[in-house]
Each structure stands twice: as structure tokens, then as C-alpha cells.
Simulated assay, not measured.
Amino acid sequence: MRHHPAFRFGQLAAAAALAFAVAAPAQAQDKFTYMTNWYAQAEHGGFYQAVAQGIYKKYGLDVTIKMGGPQVNITQMMAAGQADCIMGSSDIQMMQVREGGVPVVNVAAFFQKDPQVLIAHDDVKKFEDLKGKTILIGSQANRGYWPWLKAKFGLTDEQTRPYTFNIQPFVADKNTAQQGYLTSEPYAIQKAGVKSTVLMFSDHGFPAYATTVSCMDKTVKERSKQVAAFVKASAEGWKSYLADPAPANVLIKKDNPNMTDDQLAYSVAKLKEMGMVTGGDAATMGIGVITDARAKASYDFLVAAKLLDPAKVEIAKTYTTEFVKDAKVLP
């Protein structure tokens, strides 16, 4: 029986549509660039894992992770369109960036605690023991944790000297303490054979989140589907990384050849031990969660410390819970 050409064409079209539907996941993925705030390391592991394990692809994204570094202004680069979203060191940093005129919004926070620490020699047991010691801090500290430490523990500006991202001055002088990152400098100091005490701000009420996904208002509005996919896939990436970091670590060492297996192992162990990713609200509300109460605590700290003018920045514009609320990837 011969069919009318139109009928035959309809059959072919239906077959083509069916084939397309079956192959739909293989269609072109949306390009999405995320820029980190430092050289590749375990602290970025969940994002690299989502690339390595094809998790972003599963959610329809073709993700490029670009490394930041000490000389890279990632906020400027995002504002210039070179990244869709960036890794904020903390939510408070991004609130201040907004006050500075860049309309940036926090959409997820993958570290429920800020990993910043002060490292002292082992005669120091608590923050109060730092009175009279020399404390090496970076210039950014004055717009973040340092006003908080001064107010809480009675430390003074006279005690501070510039931190040069080198542990040798600390190693050489038992009367000094220095800033650091929970997962990094304590390891280097331990390897140098120095016994130290690590004091973590967040254990004493410092409110900040860390390792944020922060995007321009315009991106959140115009690419909300892609932002939602990125947040959910990244949360799955973090869950996977903490279970088996090997796939991401290959990519981390490719981007940052100076990274060692020992350092990666130390960092992953610390992230797990301290519940950086899976603790706090993340345990029940999902990895990457931001809550109204925590965002308010960060904002209130900045206002109280006169580090943010509330007349210039409304708290509601600094963050959104819409993406993390729907992601809900439990540890």
C-alpha cells in the first residue's frame, strides 16, 4: 500500500521527533563559567568533582572552572562578563562588594562555617591568651574578622603586623600568631615541625558563611534556570567529593601542579572533621544552604562594626534562598 507523500513526511517527522526526544540529554549544553578565589585546592573540590563526574552535564551545563589567585580581581572579571558566578571568600565580603557598587547576590554557601583561623604557638590555649602577642594579619582582615576579634577578645591594632602569606616569620618567633585557613597553613606549620594551637573564629560565634556562589543580579534574573542547575549540581559534587575525592583531585592537580596529595588529604580530612560542608543547617536543609537568620547575623555584624552602611545596602538584596531551597541535597 502506497502512502500519500504528506503522510509519509508526517511519519518521518514523528520518527525524527522521537529520536530527538530520546537523544535530548545529548543536546548542546549551556555554557557556564565559575571563577574561584584562589589556586585550585581541596576547598574547591566539590566544583571540580561535579566536572569530573559529569554531574554538571547531567543538569545540562557545560561548566568551566577558572582559577583565581592573589593578583586576580574576580569581582571585576565577573562584572566584565568573564564569569557567570564567582566564589566569594565569605558572604560578608560579597555584601561589602555590593555596597561598593557591584550588584552581586549570594545564591549558595558551601562552607557553613568560615575556615579562617589564628594560629599561635602551643603556649596559647585560647584567644584571650593572645594579648601582648604580635599578630600577623592580611589587609583584608580589617574589613572582616579583625574588628570582630577586637570587640570580642580585647585585642588591639597595636599588636598587628602585615601577614605576607609566608609562615617563616611565625616559625621564627614564638611570640607571634598569624592568620590562616583551617585546611592550609596549619598543615604547612605542622610540616615545619612547629607545635601550634589553631583558633577558629566560627567556633566562637563569627557569623560568616564561606565559599559562596555569588552572581550578578542580571545573571540571577536572566539565567535563573542555569544558576539553579549549577547550585544543585555543585551540592551533589560536594557530597560526592567528600565520599571519594580522587576524581576531582586529578583536575585540581592539573590546574595547580604545586598541589600535593598529602595537602589534599589533610584538607579533605579537616573539611570532614569540622563539618565545614555538611554540618550546621546543611545537615537537615541541604548542602550549600543559606538561611535568613544566618544572612541577618552576617549583615548585622557588618553594620555594628561600621563596615557596611545599611542606607546603601538592603539585606534582602544581598542574598536569595530560592535556589538552595529547591536543591536540597542532604549530606
Rank of each mutant, 00 (worst) to 15 (best):
T260G: 08
P257V: 07
V117T: 07
I86P: 00
E185A: 11
Y34I: 14
Q82C: 11
L264Q: 10
F47W: 13
A19P: 05
D122P: 06
A83T: 12
I315W: 10
Y241Q: 09
V268N: 06
A248P: 10
A297Y: 04
F165K: 13
I119V: 13
K296C: 13
Y34F: 15
A28E: 07
A19C: 10
I92S: 11
F127T: 04
D122S: 14
Q11F: 06
A293K: 14
P331D: 08
V63P: 08
T219M: 04
G68D: 00
K191T: 15
E322M: 15
S240N: 06
Q76I: 09
Q49A: 03
T318Y: 02
A311W: 00
N258D: 12
M78D: 04
A283Q: 12
V97L: 04
P115M: 07
A297M: 06
D84S: 13
F153K: 03
L155A: 11
V51N: 12
A109P: 14
G237A: 05
D300F: 11
Y145L: 13
C85H: 02
T33P: 10
K195V: 04
A141V: 00
P162K: 07
G237D: 03
K221M: 07
I315K: 15
A297D: 10
K125P: 09
L149T: 02
K191V: 15
K152W: 01
N249T: 04
S214C: 12
G154V: 10
S202V: 01
L242K: 05
Q41N: 14
Q27T: 12
D261V: 10
Q190R: 15
S240G: 02
I74P: 01
T318L: 03
A23N: 01
I119A: 03
D255T: 00
Q76R: 13
Y59V: 01
L136K: 11
P169D: 07
Q140T: 11
F201L: 15
V102I: 15
L136P: 08
K31P: 15
A120Y: 02
V105K: 14
G100W: 03
V51R: 08
L18V: 15
K232Y: 02
Y48R: 05
T197C: 11
E273L: 11
K221L: 11
F301R: 06
R2F: 08
R143K: 05
G100Y: 04
F323T: 02
T64F: 04
G46D: 02
P257R: 04
T160Q: 07
A50Y: 03
Q168Y: 01
A246V: 11
T75E: 09
A17Y: 00
T176N: 09
Q53P: 05
G180L: 03
K58L: 08
